[in-house]
């Protein structure tokens, strides 16, 4: 379906973009939220991704490869936004992080919180690889295209991330700690 929409866009039919936007908008803003860890920033990242998509759709030579091309644009935009955010942080004016906690979290919620904390501890590239694999259901090949790296590197990152996440989860279980931190 995306392939047809891309071909229509490349032929000058801009209404096809509206359909493409409808298909990808939620996934884009949610993926951006996961990569940046900032829901407000996610809207900007998703918007920038769609703007670039609209302006550069003719650069996409294989319309069938739209999905990895789109997520490559989104990943770059998210990494850039993260970098700018880090540069803009004024340490003296950091807002209080008000954690939204449940008084009696369920076992499942507590386990998820451990995972989020573990995920936050991963490097940017490993975390993005995990998100594209588990949340976006991208294949190893598509993630390689989206992150501009080799398939073997993606496999290595995924393997290392899984191992790291499991280790952290096990350590958290041993400490009995649960940290509630949401955006």
């Amino acid at each position: 379906m995306e392939e047809t929409l891309v071909r229509r866009m490349q032929a000058g039919d801009e209404s096809a973009f509206d359909e493409l936007f409808a298909l990808y908008q939620k996934q884009a803003v949610r993926t951006a939220a996961l990569i940046t860890g900032d829901a407000a920033l996610a809207e900007d990242v998703a918007q920038e991704t769609f703007v670039l998509c609209l302006l550069h759709i003719n650069d996409l030579r294989e319309p069938s490869r739209f999905r990895p091309w789109f997520f490559r644009t989104l990943t770059r935009s998210a990494w850039k936004a993260l970098q700018n955010k880090l540069l803009a942080i004024d340490l003296e004016n950091l807002p209080e992080m008000a954690a939204e906690t449940e008084p009696y979290p369920s076992e499942k919620a507590a386990a998820y919180e451990k995972l989020y904390r573990a995920l936050d501890g991963l490097g940017r590239k490993q975390r993005t690889t995990v998100i594209l694999y588990y949340f976006n259901d991208l294949s190893i090949k598509e993630i390689a295209e989206a992150t501009g790296t080799l398939e073997s590197t993606v496999k290595t990152r995924l393997f290392a991330a899984r191992r790291r996440l499991k280790q952290v989860l096990e350590a958290e279980e041993q400490k009995g700690e649960v940290v509630y931190e949401r955006f």
């Binding site: 588990y134 949340f135 949401r182």
Partner: peptide, 10 residues
């Protein structure tokens, strides 16, 4: 669990 947790978060 990873898949469900990520979906839940956003």
């Amino acid at each position: 669990m990873m898949k469900a947790a990520l979906s839940e978060k956003v």
